[in-house]
């Protein structure tokens, strides 16, 4: 049914069923994905605008009399265990968590895609080396090694954390891109381009890459959600963002100090927990819609 409508539409417009076009339709037809997308855009805009309005000093301003203080007018979400305003912490923390996950996902996507593209396209010993490296990384207990590295780096910042995590997560993207590139490279259009004298780099970037772009984008989206989870977990354990940078994981870590007061002092962790779930849920819904779009595209091709 979907395929049929795709065919007729493309015949009218003359363009091939582009990935974004199908994504748009997939998202439009999937209520959850559509609501998720609208909601997520609004949420991100709100978080980023609100976080940019926050007074940088206010983020770390400690009010010792208000430690774990309950919500009050002007401080709708109360105070955290250090006596900082929870609403500010939430907004800035959400911005930090999202930006970090996005940064890592972007770095992994760029490097992983490039490496996978090279390995899959050239095959032979290039591929062999890359795959051995990828195999090696995938047998590492990543979380543990990241924790050790973070604990060894004397003065680390947000940027360090992003690079450390990216260094251990790129190979998932590389593996996927490599498999898809290998598949494409065996198709005759690549052979045809070679016999027509097109240089390899041009075939890779202008012909193979556009044909696997949809999968790369799907992967990027789903990675974003996954990496938010990773960052949260690391920070929860105390090996993520430094204390001075608020993050959603840090709020969850605060919950651990509460013990049986977990429920009564809900404002310390519940908003962050809900925000994480909601954001990851939305991203997953959108990613799944993208995924379906990418599949349909392949069936037509």
């Amino acid at each position: 049914m979907t395929e049929f409508s795709e065919m007729t539409q493309t015949a009218e417009s003359g363009r091939p069923p582009s990935f974004f076009r199908i994504c748009r339709r997939e998202i439009w037809s999937d209520k959850f994905a559509f609501i998720s997308l609208v909601f997520l855009v609004i949420l991100f805009l709100y978080i980023f605008i609100a976080a940019s309005q926050v007074d940088p000093d206010g983020v770390v301003r400690v009010n010792l009399r208000k430690i774990n203080g309950s919500p009050e007018p002007g401080h709708l979400l109360g105070f955290d265990p250090s006596g900082r305003d929870m609403y500010t912490q939430l907004i800035v923390g959400a911005r930090n968590s999202v930006s970090i996950a996005a940064g890592i996902a972007a770095i992994c996507c760029i490097f992983g895609t490039l490496i996978g593209l090279f390995a899959g396209f050239f095959g032979g010993w290039v591929d062999n080396i890359v795959m051995r490296v990828v195999d090696f990384f995938s047998m590492l207990p990543i979380l543990m090694i990241v924790i050790v590295i973070v604990s060894l780096i004397p003065s680390y910042t947000v940027i360090t954390l992003v690079w450390v995590l990216a260094a251990f997560y790129w190979m998932f993207d590389a593996r996927l891109t490599r498999a898809k590139t290998l598949q494409q490279s065996n198709l005759d259009y690549v052979s045809a381009a070679k016999t027509l004298g097109t240089p390899n780099w041009k075939i890779m970037f202008t012909q193979v890459l556009p044909n696997i772009a949809s999968i790369v984008i799907v992967n990027l989206t789903l990675n974003l959600a996954g990496l938010m989870g990773v960052e949260t977990g690391l920070t929860f354990l105390g090996f993520g963002l430094p204390f001075s940078s608020p993050s959603l994981g840090a709020h969850l870590a605060n919950a651990r100090t509460l013990g049986p007061l977990l429920m009564t002092r809900w404002w310390i962790w519940l908003p962050s927990a809900l925000l994480i779930v909601i954001m990851m849920l939305c991203i997953n819904f959108i990613g799944q819609a993208f995924k379906r779009a990418a599949d349909a595209r392949q069936r037509i091709g």
């Binding site: 005759d188 045809a192 016999t195 027509l196 012909q207 556009p210 044909n211």
Partner: peptide
């Protein structure tokens, strides 16, 4: 390279669908 060219059997996969 210019003097020797090829025509492929599979007419579906030998043309890049995106161009």
């Amino acid at each position: 390279r210019r003097g020797v060219q090829m025509i492929f059997q599979d007419v579906y996969s030998s043309l890049d669908p995106k161009r």
